[in-house]
Amino acid sequence: MNWLLVIAGAAVGAPLRYLTDRAIQSRHDSLFPWGTFTVNVAGSLVLGLLTGVSSAQTHLLLGTGLCGALTTYSTFSYETLKLYESGARGYALANVTGSVAAGLAAVWLGAEAATVL
């Protein structure tokens, strides 16, 4: 039964990632992958918030399912490699450092907010 929770979360997370990525990227005339950056930081925030939730089912649905499908390390890696290969090395470096720093900050903020709630 637990796998159904993961599937249900992923069924929402995957299209949400695609639609969010396209909507954000279409608003920027930049090589920087703002869409992927945004979904990864948002997913980190949600995972941080989930630290205050004790329900295993909630973690499966929202943490593993939704956030697992919403966030994307493989696309982050691919986009960073493509930036580097195309000569946009500054954007590649900014993507790596910015994504890690923003993701850590978001998960920390989410965890802190969870303790208040």
Rank of each mutant, 00 (worst) to 15 (best):
L70C: 01
V39H: 05
P15M: 13
L47N: 01
C67H: 00
V46L: 13
N40G: 03
W108G: 05
H28R: 14
A94F: 11
I7R: 09
V100G: 07
T115D: 11
L93V: 15
G68C: 10
H59Q: 11
D29C: 05
L47G: 05
L104D: 02
D29F: 08
V116Q: 12
H28W: 15
R89E: 12
A88S: 14
T38F: 13
A8R: 01
S26Y: 08
L4G: 11
L45R: 03
L16M: 15
A14Y: 11
A94D: 10
L50P: 02
M1L: 12
Q57S: 15
N40R: 04
P15S: 12
V46Y: 06
V46A: 05
W108D: 07
L62K: 05
A11D: 10
V100L: 15
G43L: 10
H28N: 10
G98H: 04
S44T: 03
C67Q: 04
G87H: 13
W34F: 13
V107K: 00
A106F: 03
G103P: 00
L93I: 14
S26T: 11
P15L: 11
G90C: 08
S26V: 09
Y73M: 15
G110R: 00
N40L: 02
A94E: 09
R17F: 10
G63F: 06
W3E: 12
G68Y: 10
G48P: 02
A105I: 08
A11Q: 12
A106Q: 04
V46W: 08
S99H: 08
K82Y: 06
A105Y: 07
P15W: 14
T71Q: 00
L4P: 01
L31M: 14
G63T: 04
A69H: 03
S44H: 07
Q57L: 14
Y18S: 01
S55V: 04
L16K: 05
Y91L: 11
H28E: 12
N95I: 07
T72M: 00
T97I: 14
W34I: 05
D21S: 12
A42F: 14
V39S: 02
T72D: 03
T115A: 14
A113M: 15
V100Q: 08
T58K: 06
L49T: 00
A11N: 09
V41K: 00
L93E: 05
L49V: 02
G43N: 05
V41S: 02
M1V: 11
V53D: 08
R22Q: 15
Y84C: 07
V53W: 12
T38K: 07
T115F: 11
H28Y: 15
L81I: 15
L31P: 12
T20G: 00
A106M: 00
G52V: 02
A42D: 04
L31E: 12
G48L: 03
L50C: 01
L66S: 03
V39K: 05
G9D: 08
R17P: 01
Y78H: 13
T80M: 09
G63R: 01
V46T: 06
G43R: 01
P15R: 13
S55G: 07
G65W: 05
A23H: 11
C67E: 00
G63E: 06
G48W: 08
W108I: 09
H28T: 13
I24T: 03
F32R: 03
R27D: 12
P15D: 12
L60N: 06
C67K: 02
V12H: 05
S55C: 09
L66I: 09
V96Y: 05
L93K: 10
P15I: 13
A69Q: 00
A114I: 03
L4K: 09
G68S: 07
